[in-house]
Design a binder for these strands. Structure first.
Lengths: 362, 362
DNA sequence: CTGAAAGCGCTAACAA
DNA sequence: TTGTTAGCGCTTTCAG
């Protein structure tokens, strides 16, 4: 025994050929024994044992890249998203949880591609789909129809919360309009009459769907929504703080809205922060609700609308795997499938009936 | 023109051989023109143009897997972590932000491997290091020395916040003891005397370092920490709620601690939630501070200790890239490097001087 | 039951 | 300046 306990080479892992040589058989015999024996032929028990012993001795590990090349399949899926404000957000984290969980269950790895904005998606997507992934999930893509039509057709795609339908691309979404409607209807039924909506950015179709739900709930009880009642944020807590602060300054001395319906959880928490700074209690003086039910909401017990983000990740992976399997079996290429999941109200601690007294804006 | 606008094959992307054929040259000529011309030889301008035209016509895309096999390099790094309580946490999100950012800047993709616990790391790591990644970052590994010694030696590793030193593995950490010490010293200087520490789990060496800082700050001003002053959570908001609730129930009617120093931001927010439920105001009645400065803290303006998590991601990638480059150039294998980053106090809105009156536990 | 041969798409030596 | 020849490590026909 030398001072090196293990007699394997340092630079590279052992290959099938090494194992075969060691066991005195061909590399392919080793292949059939060690990796999935695809051929109908079998190996005698005796040589099988020899091969296994050799593999063990040499610490053989199959090389995923080589296998990928030969099988035209890497067992890796991609997840493309944007870094909003230079960072990944809660929404991403929630969906990613679902994706990685479902992918792992399906024996797939997950590679994340994050780009500053969806403009660049058109240029980078083809480069991404260059054999390093078997399929790609687009997370909340803001993609124009032209670019959508240019998607490379040798890779299966699934989109989550896409702003536009894409030809041949599976789609997973939640019913945001219904969720917003249910929440706002609930607020109105609690007696709230002046509800401020701190919506998302204009570019977001999800923000628009939440506005639609907000309006519909008002319309149903005969209330009209005036334009000043809907403000726009960029989905971040900081912008929630900024937008609300500006609005309050413009309405100083006037009655405080009884409730705020925020575009997402972060914006809602930004609002709560500002209200606390003004000495207002939530929900005693003002109710605040969010949207998404991210970890942010679960941690702070925020009243919110639950989007099944994790489950959407699962569904997206399921759809993608179907498409990958189909393509691999040479079946009919892409077949768009639409999955629409329901939302759900989460009570939380930040929503109650409006205060008996009128609160004035300090 | 047929009804198919593009004359490329549907199933597979065009290969170098296809391009060569189209342009009437060899595949390798196409390779030198289209991908990095590694050889010293050059191609005449005329054939270069022919090749480029052919590539464009055929929509040629280099195949990353094939290139990876040939170059023994995939330009992909891995990030291994655990799903605590079945979900990825804020800590992960912060570090991941840094990793993906730095990796993208270095032209690397990032694949995430999440496993339920670090026990399984020993079994899965070798399988992960099978040629699908060039190097691996271990995020907060709880690994035993034996397993650490077993790490495959053909792949470079870097650990972040590791519980043990690992031979030949780069390490990035922040000075948690100093951070905890600075925060607690600050709290004591504000006049707090009864500070409860809701620490992390016993298994976490980071939790221990925070406890050390907590103790040192007390010792410096001549205060002794009694055992009941330190409670253990599992780093989640839910466990923060549970542990604090139980503790408060056991101490009903006694004086409320003036401040709570939580193991991380989530636990701190869990505490705030419970205190609010008891009608106690933060920080007027009780101060609460967190640790990490995750998005959770930034969103709620929690007083906390900032760990440069994103920057730690950057540093880890830098270390890893160094190791990968070195290995690729056949240089001296692993060379452990230790990077220790400073922490920083974040004031926030949840820490103030202790109340003038004594608050009793309801 | 086993081995030989060809090829996945690309790169890197060597000839021409 | 260009083409030829070998692989990278694995899988998959097809013969023995």
């Amino acid at each position: 025994m030398s001072d090196q306990a293990k007699p394997r080479k340092a630079r590279h892992a052992a290959t099938l050929a090494d194992v075969g040589r060691e066991a005195g058989v061909s590399a392919m015999a080793a292949s059939t024994v060690l990796n999935g024996a695809r051929t109908s032929t079998r190996i005698s028990d005796e040589t099988r044992q020899r091969i296994l012993a050799a593999a063990d001795k040499l610490q053989y590990r199959p090389n995923a890249t080589a296998r990928g090349l030969a099988e035209r399949r890497l067992n890796t899926i991609g997840l493309a998203t944007t870094l909003s404000g230079n960072e990944l957000n809660q929404y991403f984290l929630e969906v990613f949880n679902g994706v990685i969980e479902a992918a792992a269950a399906a024996g797939q790895n997950t590679t994340v591609f994050a780009m500053p904005d969806w403009q660049q998606v058109g240029s980078r997507l083809p480069a991404i789909c260059d054999g390093r992934i078997d399929g790609l999930i687009l997370l909340a893509p803001l993609i124009n129809p032209d670019d959508a039509a240019q998607l490379p057709d040798h890779t299966p795609f699934v989109a989550i919360h896409a702003n536009h339908a894409m030809p041949g691309v599976g789609h997973v979404a939640s019913d945001e309009e219904a969720g917003a409607h249910a929440m706002v209807a609930h607020m109105l039924s609690l007696g709230h009459r002046r509800v401020l909506h701190l919506a998302g950015p204009n570019t977001s179709s999800g923000a628009q769907r939440r506005i639609d739900g907000f309006r519909r709930a008002h319309a149903e009880v005969g209330l009209t929504v005036n334009p000043g009642q809907i403000l726009h944020s960029d989905y971040s807590a900081a912008s929630g703080r900024r937008v609300l602060t500006e609005w309050l300054e413009r309405h100083r001395g006037q009655p405080m809205p009884e409730a705020i319906f925020a575009a997402n959880d972060a914006v809602a928490l930004g609002c709560i922060d500002i209200l606390a700074g003004l000495g207002l209690r939530v929900p005693q003086d003002v109710s605040v609700v969010g949207f998404d039910d991210t970890l942010l909401a679960r941690t702070t017990r925020l009243a919110t609308v639950r989007q099944p983000l994790r489950d959407m990740g699962h569904q997206a992976v399921a759809l993608l795997m179907q498409a990958i399997e189909a393509k691999h079996r040479g079946q009919p290429a892409r077949q768009a499938t639409e999955v629409l999941l329901p939302t759900e109200l989460v009570p939380g601690q930040t929503l109650s009936a409006p205060p008996a007294h009128t609160v004035l804006i300090p």
